[in-house]
């Protein structure tokens, strides 16, 4: 190795304890040792250039490595003293530097903003609010909802289980039994919450999303009431008149079981990308609560009847805010969050 380079290498060993800023100045500033050595390559005889270049590279690596190490260390802060946690600010903090609320753009998460709006509408309509659990048992997730053990409909829900045998709810219906038991009819409750599905993630599917369940139980409650209640709510939320359709579907916890379909509020049924050019959007599952579910909830199905529905809040939010990838909702990128 070139003499000069060797000298610098030796010097570097001696400087190993220098703080980051000093090291940086000494070696890689415009007049730094390494910078100068690199410039010197012009004056090296051609037959030695290759060897010199190699030496320079080695040296450069050592310097960079040391600098990186120092930089990480400088991130680590060790307070010498205990602070006084009861004080409004730290000792010797200049007057204009004392902690204040920051003047930057704060935001609510778009999804929670929508949950709040949805809940407010239902509260105005006279519904209670009960939030869903995020870890539950088989009874609430399946059995109380008329999914006996071995029922094929259990396959419809790709459910996560913990090693202790708890289930991560795949739908907010996991709260139905609790909502039914909580009080005597009339029961009007909406049940928003985070749910989990064991499925691969892409732009329109997440393993985690929000759902909002609702139930209405009283004497003489009918499918016609269900149709009107959901329609009224959606018109209030989407701030437009809608045409609605009900299609048959299957859920073990309702009888009849339906799919609620609305005319696309964005294109007036002429077809757009939101409705997949069909003019209609399938928005949620719903139906009349199965008598077995009422019975499990301590309610006599011979006296009372009721309806229930559940929809995905993520999808509704995405439709409303024209968000094209469900993953953005959980990515927490400020470029995204500060748009709302």
């Amino acid at each position: 190795m070139d003499n000069n380079l060797e000298k610098i290498q030796v010097q570097l060993q001696k400087d190993i304890d220098l703080p980051y800023d000093e090291l940086k100045t000494k070696y890689i500033s415009t007049n730094g040792l390494l910078t100068l050595a690199m410039k010197a390559i012009a004056s090296i005889p051609n037959d030695q250039k290759a060897a010199y270049g190699k030496g320079i590279n080695q040296l450069k690596n050592s310097v960079t490595e040391l600098l990186d190490q120092k930089k990480n260390q400088s991130l680590i802060y060790s307070p010498n003293n205990r602070i006084d946690p009861t004080a409004p600010f730290d000792v010797n903090t200049p007057k204009n530097d004392r902690p204040q609320v920051w003047d930057i753009k704060g935001t609510k998460h778009p999804l929670h903003k929508e949950v709040e709006k949805l809940v407010e509408i239902f509260q105005r309509m006279g519904f209670d609010v009960m939030e869903s659990k995020q870890m539950d048992d088989d009874y609430h997730m399946f059995e109380s909802l008329n999914f006996p053990v071995g029922h094929p409909a259990r396959d419809m829900y790709d459910t996560f289980w913990t090693e202790d045998g708890f289930v991560l709810p795949a739908h907010t219906s996991t709260m139905q039994n609790r909502a039914l038991k909580q009080s005597n009819p009339p029961i009007r409750v909406v049940l928003p919450g985070r749910v989990f599905r064991h499925e691969a993630t892409d732009a329109s599917h997440g393993h985690t999303f929000y759902q909002m369940e609702g139930i209405y139980v009283d004497k003489g409650i009918s499918l016609a009431n269900m149709k009107a209640t959901i329609k009224t709510f959606l018109e209030a939320y989407l701030e437009t008149d809608l045409e609605v359709r009900i299609q048959p579907s299957f859920f073990p916890f309702t009888e009849p079981d339906c799919e609620f379909v609305i005319s696309c509020p964005f294109c007036n049924k002429t077809g757009c990308s939101t409705c997949g050019h069909s003019g209609w959007i399938e928005l949620m599952g719903c139906g009349m609560i199965h008598p077995n579910v009422l019975t499990q909830g301590g309610i006599d199905p011979e006296i009372y009847s009721g309806f229930a529905w559940g929809f995905g809040v993520d999808r509704l939010t995405m439709i409303k805010l024209a968000i094209n990838d469900i993953r953005y909702l959980r990515d927490s990128n400020l470029n995204f969050l500060r748009q709302f």
Binding site: D218, L223, A224, N225, K227, R245, I246, E255, D257, C258
Partner: peptide, 30 residues
């Protein structure tokens, strides 16, 4: 159960032939 037959009747009659009727509710606050 009988509700299963209610469903058959509703389905065949056509859910879309069923009117929308809001439930009547008492004034108990939520």
């Amino acid at each position: 159960i009988k509700e299963d037959i209610h469903e058959d009747i509703g389905r065949i009659y056509g859910y879309n032939n069923i009117d929308s009727i809001l439930p009547l509710r008492n004034l108990i606050p939520a």
